[in-house]
Simulated scan of single mutants.
Amino acid sequence: MDYEDSLDRALTETPEMSDAVDRFQVPDPEVRSEGNVTVYENFAGTHDRLNRTQEHLLKFFQSELGTSASIDDRGRARFTGDFKHSRVADALEEYVETFVTCSECGSPDTRLVEERGATVLKCDACGALSSVSEL
């Protein structure tokens, strides 16, 4: 097999880059009111899927929603106040855009790391480092 044949074979067998991004599905937040508290039922599954700590995600929601929050014994987030699904979903989308997806290649394969005293988003796919705001 010559070089051209090997190259053609490699190109046909290599998956498209968009497939890598499409495999990442952010869970839709399941929220419901419970008195004057909004309960985020699948919060544990969400922070697991995003590969972020529950503390970091909860702190972001507290800031975005302007309320206090806690994690109950079942791993659900409980926000003080009545918040509609759309508001929680918008906040989650903002979190993913800011703290999960790479600004260079769009990959969700990232992690938050400390670099010289600052938190940065490091992409495991392309190696890019992006600054992120502190919470």
Rank of each mutant, 00 (worst) to 15 (best):
E97P: 00
S6H: 09
G66S: 03
S103F: 05
V100R: 09
C123R: 01
R49E: 13
L121W: 02
D109T: 02
R76Y: 08
A91P: 13
L65K: 04
Q62K: 13
F60V: 01
M1S: 13
R52M: 03
D82G: 02
S68V: 12
V132E: 08
A44T: 11
E104C: 00
R74Q: 14
P108S: 08
G35I: 05
D90W: 04
L57K: 01
A77W: 07
L121K: 08
D5Q: 15
C126Q: 10
A91W: 08
S70Y: 14
F60I: 01
T110W: 03
R74W: 09
E93Y: 03
L65S: 12
F61H: 08
G66Q: 08
D28M: 10
F99S: 06
V132Q: 10
Y95D: 00
V39P: 09
G127F: 12
G127H: 11
G117E: 12
A125K: 08
R49A: 09
L50R: 01
L57R: 03
K84I: 04
F24G: 10
D48S: 02
V39A: 11
S133M: 12
G66W: 09
L11D: 08
E97S: 14
D73W: 02
T98N: 09
E64N: 06
A91L: 10
E94V: 03
Y40T: 02
Q54H: 10
G66C: 03
R52W: 02
S18I: 14
V31Y: 03
P27C: 07
S6K: 15
N36T: 07
V39T: 13
A44Y: 01
G75K: 00
R76G: 06
V39Q: 13
T12N: 15
C102W: 00
V100S: 07
R74I: 01
R49N: 06
R52E: 07
V37T: 13
A118V: 10
R52S: 01
Y3H: 07
S18E: 15
R9M: 12
A44Q: 10
E115V: 13
T110H: 03
Y95F: 15
D48H: 01
N51L: 07
L50W: 00
R9H: 12
K122W: 08
E55M: 01
V88E: 11
F60L: 01
N36D: 14
L50K: 00
E64D: 15
E94M: 06
L50H: 00
T101S: 07
V113N: 05
R111E: 15
S130W: 10
E55R: 00
T12A: 15
D82Y: 01
D73I: 04
V132M: 11
N42T: 08
S131P: 05
D124K: 09
T12Q: 15
E94I: 03
P27Q: 07
T38E: 11
D90R: 14
T46W: 02
C126M: 06
V113W: 02
F83V: 04
M17I: 14
R111V: 00
G127L: 07
F79C: 02
S103A: 09
R49S: 05
R116P: 03
T46C: 06
E64K: 14
